[in-house]
Design a protein around this nucleic acid. Structure first.
Lengths: 146, 146
DNA sequence: TTAATCTATACTTAAATACTATAGATTAAA
DNA sequence: TTTAATCTATAGTATTTAAGTATAGATTAA
């Protein structure tokens, strides 16, 4: 049950956009360079994130991308849900019809509960929270001299 | 972040063994038939479950498999951890060296927390708990006439 | 008009998953 | 002692998914 590269890269891209929020459009090439992720791959991830109203874009020279909403209104759970192919540990949670046993399957309820536990945690963290974490991390490092 | 078939089938197999606990060895062919899972696949899953001391086996005619410990001492989390290739949402949790960024990666901590939330939930459920769920499910169904 | 950017679609490669096949070891019972 | 029922071990294959790349086109500031 590893996250795909899609949601890991996508979350890092969204965090990068949050770090440059309210500073005008950010070129995808910059993000790719800073975060060491392939440009063409990020271009693909942007599509569903635009559809979900998490990113808005400006075309042409001086164009780029930016958060469509403030960082405190976007959670990691929303990003993962958008980029991952379903947020559940088993396909039968969202789609009981795919397994004939789902009506009487004891394990199905377990996967559902565990999915929810994970998702609740991811949904409790906003991009804004992550910016705060970054700040206190930097402070810690300068104090301890790392 | 879907669970693999390994852990889903493996958990159902362990539950089947729990349902027949203390009734002598259970043939793998019976389990496969009851649960509609391929024999040869289950044979592979048994190997790590034996190594983890969750299953013990008897060879030869009248042989089969049984739980190596009582159902109340085996959790779903243990089964999943044994069968899944690592229990974390990202490989960098257990193995920080695989990513050069891990020392300063904000997202890494998020994946770690979410992995823990999921695993804590799975670890709170024993096979014994599932047998109880089964009992109350059956009772509900006979009362409601389903 | 140009060049910098995003957009759209299709393609390729690599890895992991799910499953199957074959041969061998063990042992209860006839 | 032989047989047949079971587990054990290892290797192989096929399918699917994930990850990454390529090409052509649309938009727009300067």
């Amino acid at each position: 049950m590893r996250l795909s590269t899609r949601s890991r890269y996508g979350t890092r891209m969204m965090l990068d956009l949050a770090q440059h929020h309210d500073k005008g459009p950010v070129r995808i090439g910059e993000i790719a360079k800073r975060q060491d992720m392939p440009v063409k791959y990020l271009e693909q991830l942007i599509i569903p994130l635009k559809q979900g109203n998490f990113i808005k874009s400006v075309r042409g020279p001086k164009g780029g991308h930016m958060l469509a909403r403030p960082p405190e209104e976007i959670t990691v759970g929303q990003i993962v849900k958008t980029l991952e192919n379903g947020i559940d540990l088993s396909g039968c949670i969202e789609n009981p019809g795919e397994c004939e046993r789902s009506g009487r399957c004891l394990t199905r309820g377990i996967w559902e509960d565990a999915s929810k536990a994970m998702y609740d945690k991811l949904n409790s963290i906003t991009l804004s929270n992550m910016l705060e974490m970054e700040k206190s991390f930097k402070m810690h490092c300068s104090v301890s001299g790392v």
